[in-house]
Computed example of a mutant assay.
Amino acid sequence: MDQIIDFLEKNGGELLTKMWEHLYISLIAVVLGIIVAVPLGVVLTRMKRGAGFIIGIVNIFQTLPSLAILAFFIPILGVGKIPAIVALFFYSVLPILRNTYAGVQGVNKNLLESGKGIGMTTWEQIRLVELPLAVPVIMAGVRTSTIYLIGWTTLAAFIGGGGLGDYILIGLQLYQPEFIIAGAIPVTILAVIIDLSLMKLEKKVTPEGLKGLKEVS
């Protein structure tokens, strides 16, 4: 305990910097995943064939070891935060893509027919009917992806990406538990805070009618 207190006294400012690095690496990767996966998920719902194949291909990427993906981008992008963000982006896509596809597919077809009946274009149906109704399922994928990435971002330290993984790496190399604890505990705290924040965001963006349906069910 004394070692941890001493560590915080000496490295408190740096710890906050590492937490910020860790957070923005994770969130940039997730935002990129949302930008790619949500539109792609909607497009896949329009495909009569090939949707399962594409999701399967993305699923294969998800099974590749994290360090292997990071190492793959080193010859292309070098070391640092950019290859870390790109590698983590690939891991962020599958949960969001799968949930977007499932959420949009699960929209009541009668509502879509009603939309067509009042003259809605395909884009208007997506924007005003499908995406709002699929929000709870999509947000579940975003939350899952974000929590995973906050944990996986610790691996960015192996390619000079920074973040809290630096402390874990130093602790393992020097056999100093206080460094490992200083890296691991803030990661857990960040994951809990972000999960709660996304839960609140999900409630805000979920249409009121769906909130009522959740409460009844």
Rank of each mutant, 00 (worst) to 15 (best):
T206F: 01
S114E: 13
K109G: 09
V58R: 09
G33I: 03
V135D: 03
I34E: 00
L88E: 02
M199I: 01
M139R: 12
L15K: 10
H22C: 12
L32W: 12
Q62H: 04
G141E: 02
T100K: 02
G50Y: 14
L16C: 12
Y91K: 05
G80W: 00
A134C: 04
I185Y: 01
L201C: 06
G209W: 13
S26Y: 02
M139Q: 10
L16P: 03
E208F: 14
T153Y: 14
V58M: 11
T154I: 10
K18L: 15
T122V: 14
T188D: 10
I193K: 00
G161I: 14
E208N: 13
L149T: 09
S26Q: 00
V192E: 00
G163P: 10
E130I: 05
A134M: 03
G165T: 12
Q176N: 12
Y101H: 06
A134T: 01
W20L: 09
P186L: 05
K203N: 12
K203Y: 08
D166P: 06
Y167Q: 09
F89Y: 06
G106A: 07
G162I: 00
G80H: 06
K204Y: 13
S217N: 08
T121E: 11
Y167F: 11
T144I: 14
T146I: 04
I194R: 15
W20F: 09
I138V: 09
S26G: 08
I193L: 07
P177L: 00
V187S: 13
I138G: 04
Q173C: 03
M120F: 13
R49N: 08
N108W: 02
L27E: 07
G162P: 09
E215T: 14
K214M: 10
T17L: 15
A87H: 06
I74T: 15
G162S: 07
K204W: 10
T206R: 03
K200P: 11
N11G: 07
K214N: 11
L128A: 15
D6A: 15
F158Q: 11
G106E: 01
E124S: 10
I181K: 13
P207D: 01
V135W: 13
V187K: 14
A191W: 10
G183P: 02
G12D: 10
G183M: 08
Q125P: 05
A134R: 04
L164F: 07
I193S: 03
G151Q: 07
L155C: 05
L169D: 07
V129P: 02
I34Q: 02
I34R: 14
A156C: 03
Q125N: 12
N110W: 10
L23P: 08
D2M: 06
K18V: 02
P65R: 03
R98F: 06
G161T: 13
V86R: 00
L67C: 07
F53D: 04
I76H: 04
I159F: 01
I194T: 07
T206G: 03
G163S: 08
A157W: 00
G171T: 00
A84M: 04
S145W: 10
D2P: 09
V216Q: 08
V86P: 00
G162E: 02
L8P: 12
V36T: 13
Q62W: 00
M19K: 12
L94H: 05
L77W: 01
L67P: 05
I194G: 12
I28R: 01
G115E: 03
G212Y: 14
D195M: 07
I5E: 01
L210Y: 05
I57F: 04
T122D: 15
P186G: 05
A157Y: 00
A157F: 01
T188K: 13
I168E: 02
L112Q: 04
N108D: 14
A87Y: 08
